[in-house]
Design a protein around this nucleic acid. Structure first.
Lengths: 161, 161
DNA sequence: TCTACTCGGACAGCATGTGTCCGAGTCAAG
DNA sequence: CTTGACTCGGACACATGCTGTCCGAGTAGA
């Protein structure tokens, strides 16, 4: 029961991309967050595969959000990076053993599976209720309105190692 | 983001133990569910360490619930087997990189961490709201009132291989 | 006293996540 | 138009933790 650590990186990148006007290369994002460029690239590829970000190749290429930050939920990012499969998978052990329930009586999921599915749905609903725009607003409220201006300036200028 | 498969086994065992009057050996529970006895033993040990079940050694030993089924939540079992650590761990990458937030400004968790913690709490609340007794009631409703009587009878009698 | 049965923790095997690398493609500049 | 450098994308090792197994310590009953 552990989420991939790449989810945190991907969420931070999405918030940063909110402030960017031009595409941002993965290496630049990695430098900004001080994380492994190679591994961050993998997470961004996952976001690209899910259609959350758009990749631009070439000299001035990089990644940019495909739609408004209000239209991207935290759940979208989590599912893109960590997979959309539910954490609990019922193996139908009620159909095994000497007192097995006959298959024709197993049209509905068992009680345990139902409880787990309900909890999973509550978790997803909570993540679905928060958008990248909400996160950006919270960041502004936490650290002041100048944060994204600073990020935009840093992204725009040249930064030798 | 995958839960240990042993959680399902442990929950089924707790429901079965609801119907048992005497301690039930791990091997008997494994036979009933047709799963690996050795591995199921590990899950039951975890339940014992968490104080959910009581182990009795010796000739007529086995496992029994330590308290009423109404007092054991699904969350208790999940945390006992899968661990109580939250799925998302914030690595505080906001304090890293060229635009790092100073440590003295990081008294409260960041927005991403807050959103994840809220979702985690929603998930836990859903699991905390269901008890083993609720599961047993659902099982009775699904398959009729004779299910636990059959289980009790099977547990009581001898079963050669 | 003895036996047989139980749990408990320590030991391999394997799958998935973590981290890295190099090649294909593309845009900009000269 | 050519060149060049920069970008992404997928394929390759490594590590961690779950999965599965085993045998020894302890105990209740005969």
């Amino acid at each position: 029961m552990k989420m991939s650590g790449g989810v945190e990186w991907a969420l931070h990148c999405c918030v940063v991309l909110t402030a960017a006007e031009h595409p941002v290369p993965a290496a630049r994002l990695a430098e900004l967050h001080d994380v492994s460029p190679s591994y961050l690239a993998k997470q961004l590829q996952a976001l690209s595969r899910a259609g959350l970000v758009q990749s631009v190749q070439g000299h001035a290429g990089g990644y940019a959000l495909t739609r408004a930050a209000e239209q991207i939920t935290v759940l979208d990012v989590v599912e893109a990076v960590d997979g959309a499969a539910p954490a609990f998978v019922c193996t139908e052990i009620r159909q095994r053993g000497p007192l097995a329930t006959p298959a024709e009586a197993c049209t509905a999921p068992c009680a345990i599976s139902r409880a787990m599915a309900a909890a999973d749905e509550a978790w997803r609903a909570a993540l679905r209720g928060v958008t990248i725009a909400d996160l950006a607003r919270s960041v502004t409220g936490d650290y002041g309105p100048g944060v994204f201006a600073g990020i935009r300036e840093w992204l725009g200028s040249d930064h030798p190692i």
